[in-house]
Computed example of a mutant assay.
Amino acid sequence: MGQILRTKYFIVNTMGNVKNIIIAFLAPLPSILFYLSFLNHYHYSPTSHHPSLWKWCYDHPLLLANVLFFFNVNVLFWLVALLQSSHWMIDPYWTVIPVILVHYYASHPVAQYDWWRSRILIVLTWVWSMRLLHNYLRRENWQWGQREDWRFTEMARQYGTHWWWASFFAIYLPHQIFLIALSLPMYVVHSSVDQPLTMWDMVALLLCVSGIAIAYLADTQLHNFVKLRQGGEAVVPVLETGLWYYSRHPNYFGEQVWWWGVFVFAWSMGHGWTFVGAFTNSMCLAYVTKLVEDRMLKQGYRTEAYTLYQRTTSVWVPWFKSHHLKTKNA
């Protein structure tokens, strides 16, 4: 009987996983098909005549990105979430949307850019995306949509019966603001005059690679620690080895270094105003950091150890401890 139940659970779980994978892959198709239709129908020449819709898409690439994001991500993803009673899909798509956006900016008919700078940024964005998507999937035991972000679950409890409509404004609109703002340097790189590479592009490359590497190492160390705890092998309540010895959130630090590196590509071309994306992301991570630490302190077996960890260890930037950590023997 037990074997039958396990087999039934496995089949149901697998079917649910496959269903969510299909949904995730179909979700961006409306925007992709619309954009491909635009590219297929719009051929610019001084004497050409096009429907006003295609002309608008040609003249306003950044606005078009926002319109497609609003209807395809905000509205469609929100409707899917209501049907599934879970806002899981926006989490993996945080890693995918920047890749879609950088290719969109590079392929738009009005794009003009240095080939090397564009390819460097595109490759870096792919590497960042694959790293983050890999971390998401291994954290979720390679399951798609089995659970939503714990912060969304807590917000659902707070909003109660109003969550069905409040979730649109609490989850999806902020994601549009963050991701479009973060992608502004990608837009600038592909919409400015053809400027050759400079020393600052090499600085941006170094920052981006460093950010990806730091975040990967930090997330891997955290993943291994969680696995040890789940297997009963780790008895310490707080991870304080590796990068986590020098920073309480080295993964967040790496993520910020990545986005500030992307900003340097645009800054080197004279578009310092694009700092708004990296700055907004840093402010968001500051808030998320508070939420995570408050949650840690509420877990009784961790409270004392984590309080001491807070007093001795840097929040983001890896640094030496303020004093030697003294632990009590059990």
Rank of each mutant, 00 (worst) to 15 (best):
K8V: 11
F10S: 13
F10Y: 11
M15P: 00
F38Q: 07
L53Q: 04
W54L: 11
W56C: 06
V67D: 02
L68G: 00
W78T: 07
L79A: 11
L79K: 05
L82I: 14
S86N: 08
Y93A: 11
Y104C: 05
H108G: 08
P109H: 10
Q112S: 15
R119H: 14
W126V: 09
W128H: 05
W128T: 01
S129Y: 06
H134Y: 15
R151M: 01
R151Y: 09
M155A: 10
Q158G: 07
Q176T: 14
F178L: 12
L179P: 02
I180D: 03
Y187G: 05
Y187P: 00
H190I: 11
S192V: 13
D194C: 09
P196N: 12
D201L: 10
L206N: 07
C208Y: 07
V209G: 03
A213P: 01
L217Q: 14
Q221L: 02
V226S: 13
V226K: 15
G232L: 04
A234F: 13
V236R: 10
G242H: 04
L243E: 05
Y246P: 01
S247I: 06
S247F: 06
R248A: 08
W258K: 06
W260C: 03
V264K: 06
C284D: 09
K298F: 01
Y306M: 02
Y309L: 04
V317M: 08
K328L: 15
